[in-house]
């Protein structure tokens, strides 16, 4: 999307709804929390679009998403939970990609459980990079930290994941 384009609310929901859900699910391990978070984010986007100034839409959207997520978690005072393995395994039977082989064909439930053991800042940086697909600069804008901090968190987060899954 060009930087000067202001999307409609419905467009944001259609294009980003699933990604926001995946972001929230990977951070919480809880489908209900993730679903509620999508609603909350869309609500804030709807209100926020009225005052949105064209610029980095991704940075704007993910800052809202992150803040909504943190507010919701704070409000519920709920700690992330380890999910049930059902419904979150890759059982498509497809031929694994070279990357899957490289990653040791770990069950997604194991990777999810390891993610939930990371300190929040590291988990968030890894999820925004490897699940959402944001650049370091976009992650820095969303989390309001310097790019160097993002770089450190991503590296250390992955290091911890490897140790947890070894």
């Amino acid at each position: 999307m060009p930087d000067d384009a202001v999307p409609s609310w419905e467009e944001v929901a259609r294009v980003h709804g699933r990604t926001i859900y995946n972001f929230a699910y990977r951070l919480t391990g809880n489908a209900d929390d993730a679903h509620d978070l999508v609603q909350e984010v869309l609500l804030r986007v709807r209100k926020g679009l009225l005052a949105y100034t064209p610029g980095s839409f991704e940075g704007w959207l993910w800052r809202i998403t992150r803040n909504a997520f943190l507010d919701e978690m704070r409000r519920r005072k709920r700690r992330p939970t380890v999910p049930l393995p059902e419904g979150d395994r890759d059982e498509t039977g497809a031929v694994p990609s070279p990357e899957d082989v490289l990653a040791g064909t770990r069950l997604s439930s194991e990777v999810q459980a390891a993610l939930l053991q990371l300190p929040y800042d590291f988990r968030e940086a890894v999820v925004l990079c490897d699940v959402v697909g944001l650049s370091y600069e976009e992650i820095a804008a969303a989390a309001d930290v310097p790019v160097g901090t993002v770089r450190s968190r991503i590296h250390r987060g992955r290091r911890m994941l490897k140790d947890l899954l070894a």
Binding site: E10, E11, A13, R14, G17, R18, Y21, N22, Y25, R26, A31, H35, V38, D88, R89, D90, S97, E99, D100, L102, A103, G104, R106, S108, V111, Q112, L115, V126, V127, D130, V131, H155, R158, R159, L161, K162, L165
Partner: peptide, 23 residues
Amino acid sequence: DVSWARSAVRGLPVLDLPGGLAV
């Protein structure tokens, strides 16, 4: 090691939003 971890997270399945989107 970090490449392995990176691939493990990137290999997580993309989950569909329950109920889908009306639009």
